[in-house]
Design a protein around this nucleic acid. Structure first.
Lengths: 335, 335
DNA sequence: TTGTAAGCGTTATCAT
DNA sequence: ATGATAACGCTTACAA
């Protein structure tokens, strides 16, 4: 460890530690010339402040935690990139936690974050559970939490999401416009806010088109790809849908595999639209029509808002929902 | 903040802070019954240790930093997942830094990590620079560094990589076996170790097949996708290669776009093999033949080794290269 | 088996 | 404009 401390600088310059500290912080109390000398010496000796000492004293860590269900989905990877970008600009560090879609991990992580380890938390909920008391508890302790994407609307804080309900409608109506009448919905979980909203949008669009909702056309996500594929295959065989709405990238992939295995022509016999942030869906056979969320921006906003609330004293996060628009990219899978 | 401290527990239980501290750490000095009382009270009051105080005192942060060039390439996303997994199992936290392929960021990050903020660093080099003095300096300060994937073999530490040289050969020979005689190489940068090794492998395979190396068949990566596509198009038009080795996923993608724009049939007229960790390349048109690195394992190993070295005192990281095998998945792009 | 006290490096308050 | 000092919460000799 560098182990150059403020005391070392003080000794070298024949000043007191407190003067050094103030000088490094550009305090108005300190002589301009002294500041210069101090800063130069600091640079020369490669002084790096001990963040633990500062953290202990100031009760702030300049660190935020990010908890995501996974990191390999391009949506979350890009969101983290956005978070990192905003954090970095504001001199915050980012601690990362991956819950692997399990709220038990999420809970453990959150509970370990008390007592100053981080100044705030950004989280996209794992979604296999509805009881978010542990999040409220964290808030009550004074640790601010910002939610994004998979949120719980009952938690009193700022939530950054995409327009999931509208997108559910848009996705379904796009398929309807392309002539589909028998549309299956491939969902994540009934406990994930994004999925609930998209599903509601799906139902609304059907209703508006006077098409009866058929629960047998609903499929739920499993963590096992093979299971997803076989579930989709069985619906394809039993219910002969002519359109599929895949609420996450993984399910769109599984749908492609299922269709391929059954020799069903995607785009002709079955049209597929998927929520996805992967750039290469363009190269799929056929190219996948997507609803693409502004992942980077969502992350960036979440971090910016959290950090703003940290920097202004007595500022508490508004209980509001910020919705960023997604884009529908029409491609050959719904030709 | 929770603000339950050891002192609070001490007061509640009529014990001294040091007894509490020892009890929580399961010290042999403490009566079993006392330990129980302490732990119960701690749980009841949801005591969370202040990691900054402990860190200041013990000079260890139970935190490692990860620096990656980007996070949206599936390779790095999976590597981070592996790192997080190993870290989490060993009760380490993970700070994440994304250099955006620029060593200047990398350098800034590293320089900010001195003085106890982290116990060690795992890094995949950005590669737009060859002078890694800042890494050596960090090591000299006593901060251990483990390199993975994009490494500098001249840095004295443990490096976890994939068998890039062999893979360069394997990729090229696969194309040769499929009848290609005029193979272009789409590279990242002459300063990135992975790319250098793969390129050497490519050259070796050509030589072995008595095919002259043609520098005009080499393309270098730009951060701009459009530039990559146009560079590849111009080689396709001018040099009429019948095979392409893409040393990263992004370049394979660009190659697909280039071929599509020029109406060149991938798999027939030009065969493409790409280094990639994306799961969905199977669905490409045509499916992309890949060399796939064990990304998760690489990350996991890097973290495990770093943490091991941290836990054992007086243990320094060996100056060795650990090579994990990649897999060649043959698909229709090289049919 | 438990308690006392010093100290980690910084900052904030209060002198000088 | 600069300096002395206490305190942040924890750990660890050392003492009891």
């Amino acid at each position: 460890m560098s182990s150059i401390t403020i005391k070392d600088l003080a000794q070298k310059l024949n000043l007191s530690p407190s003067t050094i500290s103030k000088a490094l912080k550009d305090s108005y109390e300190i002589n301009a010339e002294t500041k210069l000398r101090v800063k130069e010496m600091a640079k020369q000796l490669k002084y790096v402040p001990n963040s633990y000492a500062a953290g202990l004293r100031k009760k702030t860590s300049q660190t935020i935690a990010v908890i995501v269900p996974n990191i390999t989905d391009a949506f979350f990877a890009k969101a983290i990139y956005g978070i990192h970008s905003a954090a970095n600009q504001n001199n915050y560090n980012v601690l990362i936690y991956i819950s692997s879609e399990d709220y038990k991990n999420e809970k453990l992580f959150i509970e370990s974050l008390g007592n100053g380890k981080v100044d705030g938390i950004i989280i996209s909920l794992s979604g296999n559970n509805n009881n978010h008391e542990y999040i409220r508890f964290t808030q009550d302790e004074g640790l601010p939490v910002v939610l994004f994407d998979c949120v719980d609307f009952d938690i009193d804080t700022t939530k950054i999401i995409s327009d999931d309900y509208t997108n559910g409608i848009k996705a379904t109506e796009h398929l309807l416009q392309r002539g589909c009448r028998n549309i299956a919905y491939l969902g994540i979980s009934e406990q994930v806010s994004t999925d609930i909203s998209r599903r509601e949008g799906y139902k609304f669009a059907l209703e508006k088109a006077h098409i009866a909702f058929d629960p047998e056309l609903m499929i739920t996500y499993s963590h096992n790809t093979a299971t997803n594929i076989s579930r989709i295959k069985s619906v394809l065989q039993n219910k002969k849908p002519d359109g599929l709405v895949a609420s996450i990238h993984d399910l769109a992939i599984a749908a492609y595999y299922a269709c391929n295995e059954l020799n069903i022509k995607i785009g002709q016999e079955v049209k597929i639209i998927g929520f996805s942030n992967f750039d290469a869906v363009d190269l799929f056979n056929p190219p996948l029509t997507t609803i693409t969320q502004p992942a980077f921006n969502i992350g960036e906003q979440a971090a910016t808002i959290l950090i703003q609330s940290l920097e202004k004293k007595n500022y508490t996060l508004k209980n509001e929902v910020i919705t960023l628009p997604s884009v529908l990219y029409k491609r050959a899978s719904t030709q």
